[in-house]
Design a protein around this nucleic acid. Sequence first.
DNA 1: TCGGCAACTTGATCAAAATCAAAGGCGTCT
DNA 2: AGACGCCTTTGATTTTGATCAAGTTGCCGA
Lengths: 245, 245
Amino acid sequence: MQIVNEHRRKDIHNSDIPTVCAACEARHGGVCGTLTPDQLLDLSRHSTRRSIEPGREVIGQGETTESYANIIKGVVKLSKVLADGRQQIVGLQFAPDFMGRPFTRESALTAEAAVDTDICCFPRTVIDRLVAEAPGLEHRLHEQALKELDEARDWMLTLGRKTAQEKVASFLYIIATHIDPENGTANEFDLPLSRADIADYLGLTIETVSRQITKLRKDNVIRIENSRHVNVPSLDRLMHVAGID
Amino acid sequence: MQIVNEHRRKDIHNSDIPTVCAACEARHGGVCGTLTPDQLLDLSRHSTRRSIEPGREVIGQGETTESYANIIKGVVKLSKVLADGRQQIVGLQFAPDFMGRPFTRESALTAEAAVDTDICCFPRTVIDRLVAEAPGLEHRLHEQALKELDEARDWMLTLGRKTAQEKVASFLYIIATHIDPENGTANEFDLPLSRADIADYLGLTIETVSRQITKLRKDNVIRIENSRHVNVPSLDRLMHVAGID
DNA sequence: TCGGCAACTTGATCAAAATCAAAGGCGTCT
DNA sequence: AGACGCCTTTGATTTTGATCAAGTTGCCGA
């Protein structure tokens, strides 16, 4: 996943993308790197900017996905729920990820902003048209899907085989490495998720998450202010606690 | 996932694929549906057939992936291990799935045959060349990636939020619906995994898996012979126990 | 400055699954 | 047939994390 970020950054800097897409700032990543100037212009004309406050739903589970979107700023939770209300967050998307479910009209997920989030939406008709005429775009979407698949499988190992302590440490590691991809790994950051969200991401309860965070604090693996602001003195130590070799 | 199987079956029957690919029987699905006769011929000339006995590794974790493969027959486990040996199976692939990690030279996974398995391998150079000249092929690979992503996320819900009982029932449901996709859902089948493998797939221990299977048997949700052969009188009942609404 | 509320923490107890331990099947090799 | 080995089941006990139940903290609006 480090490699993918690296690659994405390279795309942005090396390509001579005009700033037409600046209207939605989507040039900062996402999907634009593979398009011709004309196509970019086309895309930006059809794009709309949306701001979403925390907890607001982007796409509901089972709803028809009418659009794709670049995340400009913020964090989006992708989650699934069981009939009786048990919930599992199955993925987090950070700026500048591309969101959407190509070739599927039904979204099997609920997408919800975790913090104040800005997205740039493209109608699916436009994206589908561009995919048909620009093979590079499908390649880009394919790469995104493979990246998400890798992340999902990494997380399956965490969900299935790690202890509560390791899960919480793994979560903090994920946030540290993704919250600000432009600047690499952060050793100080605000948690984009509440304790309840963290619990849903880790397959734990709120209380267990809280206790494990307290333990990490007492063990000097992290420092905490505000219950949201985290400082990680040594990433190596965090990774060790997380069971990442 | 029902939809995808449906779709795959349709592909096979509707397309007028020549039987050149018969050399490796890969025509039964996989990747061939999107190619021209010439390209199929090209592909089949470079394909090699391999038989793999249970437990044998197909691609090792961290090894370079030199080839892609269609699964002709059998089941392949995709797994990840922690430094201390804890293991998690992150995916199962059934015939006629296409296996491989496009655009990534490093495999983050170990792929291992669960039962006697036949695969048809294509060197990555050939596939990469065909992807470049046949845009439909990348589309096909992209769809496969999205299908695997959906399955991975479904499984995350199972790993994170279901009880041991629900996990085991969910596993049996997966097998019933995937073991023989040509004929739809099976209500009688042989388990392709040992208890240890099932445990690694469900994030449980062998003992817990065994106890839950015993409980399902006592509750008349399933019948068992040989500890491998399973009969499911009512799929609805199994789904209900699995927490699938 | 004071409620009031939501999010978080902490404590006590409980339950589900892990662990430890011992049999019980079943196939294979001699 | 008998002995060995592997996989599976079953039982007893322990541990981890869930549940139930108070408290804190911090934030916002009156």
